[in-house]
Amino acid sequence: MSFLDASSMTGGYGAADILHDCTLKVEKGQIAVIVGPNGAGKSTAMKAVFGMLRLRAGKVTLDGDDITALSPQERVRKGMGFVPQVNNVFPTMSVEENLEMGAFIRTDDFRDTMEQVYDLFPILREKRFQNAGELSGGQRQQVAVGRALMTKPKLLMLDEPTAGVSPIVMDELFDRIIEVARTGISILMVEQNARQALEIADMGYVLVQGANRYTDTGAALMADPEVRRTFLGG
């Protein structure tokens, strides 16, 4: 069984379903990427995994535990970390305080974790006493990822982490994400920049209208002419 196994998810916000029998799996320490056209339900699928959407059918297990009935907060305690696409920092709090708030549910000493986050994102150590709202877009994304890492999650979920940042910053963010995965954390992310994301992905999911269209390793999807033509622009 995969580390994260979200299988046959069906559901939506209101009467109409957005997800139709959608399945997402991530192995330990691997990177899985969800790509697809606008309105394909990518973010919705991610929210379903995190428990922000009521499922009519399907099941989510993490490390073998069934977490389908848990609230997002309870899933955080179970080892999920979630970085929303927007509004993902506390703008009038310092970088350090943002990280502290990330560790709010921890009762043990979290200074080690904070050091690890600072090692991963050295710019944050430099700006630790500056308010997160005053940072640049790329730096804010690093704060957001760092905040989610403070709970020492086993699965980190990123909703379009590179939205609105420059290509250089995007490359750097992807590098960092690979580094995070190397420490044994599984990663599930939604990406608009499908090409670049699939390059670093162990596993890729192409969603169309809330259903799995193609599922394969990142490299295989990149090589598939059909996928290239339809979703990667040639």
Binding site: Q73, N87, F90, E97
Partner: peptide
């Protein structure tokens, strides 16, 4: 800790909830 959690809640309620506040 409580004071900071109040500021966090004021700043960004959804993220505060996600952080377990």
């Amino acid at each position: 800790r409580t004071g900071k959690s109040m500021r966090a809640f004021s700043d960004n309620e959804d993220l505060a909830l996600l952080s377990g506040i």
